[in-house]
Computed example of a mutant assay.
Amino acid sequence: MNNLCHFDFLKQLVETPSPSGFEQPVQRLIRQQLEPLADTIETDIMGNLIALLKGTGGPTVMLAGHCDEIGFMVQFVDDKGFIYFGAIGGVDPHLSPGQRVAIHTDQGDIAGVIGKKAIHLIDSKDRDTVINLKKQYIDIGCTSREEVERLVSIGDPVTFAVGLQPLQGRRVTARAFDDKMGAFVVTEVLKQVKNNGGMAADLYSVSTVQEEVGLRGGITSSYGVNPDIGIVVEVTHATDCPDVEHNGIGRVELGKGPVIARGANVNPMLFRLLVETAKAENIPVQIIGVPRATGTDANVMQLSRGGVATALLGIPLRYMHTPVETLDLNDLESAIRLLTASLTRIHHHTSFVPV
Rank of each mutant, 00 (worst) to 15 (best):
residue 2 N to E: 15
residue 5 C to V: 14
residue 12 Q to V: 02
residue 14 V to G: 04
residue 17 P to Y: 02
residue 18 S to H: 05
residue 18 S to F: 03
residue 19 P to Y: 09
residue 23 E to S: 08
residue 27 Q to L: 01
residue 32 Q to R: 14
residue 38 A to R: 02
residue 45 I to S: 15
residue 52 L to A: 09
residue 56 T to P: 00
residue 59 P to N: 12
residue 59 P to I: 10
residue 67 C to G: 11
residue 76 F to C: 00
residue 82 F to N: 06
residue 86 G to I: 00
residue 88 I to N: 03
residue 91 V to A: 06
residue 95 L to E: 05
residue 102 A to R: 10
residue 108 G to C: 06
residue 109 D to V: 02
residue 113 V to G: 05
residue 115 G to E: 06
residue 131 I to T: 14
residue 132 N to F: 00
residue 137 Y to A: 14
residue 145 R to Q: 14
residue 149 E to I: 11
residue 150 R to G: 15
residue 156 D to H: 12
residue 161 A to V: 01
residue 167 L to D: 12
residue 170 R to T: 13
residue 172 V to I: 15
residue 173 T to K: 12
residue 182 G to V: 06
residue 190 L to Q: 02
residue 193 V to I: 15
residue 195 N to P: 02
residue 197 G to P: 00
residue 198 G to I: 08
residue 199 M to I: 11
residue 199 M to V: 11
residue 212 E to R: 05
residue 215 L to G: 01
residue 233 V to N: 06
residue 240 D to Y: 13
residue 240 D to S: 11
residue 243 D to Q: 14
residue 252 V to M: 13
residue 252 V to C: 08
residue 261 A to I: 05
residue 265 N to W: 01
residue 266 V to K: 07
residue 268 P to G: 06
residue 272 R to S: 14
residue 273 L to A: 02
residue 275 V to Y: 11
residue 283 I to N: 08
residue 284 P to Q: 10
residue 287 I to F: 09
residue 297 D to F: 01
residue 298 A to C: 12
residue 299 N to A: 15
residue 303 L to W: 10
residue 312 L to W: 10
residue 323 P to C: 06
residue 345 R to L: 14
residue 345 R to F: 08
residue 345 R to D: 10
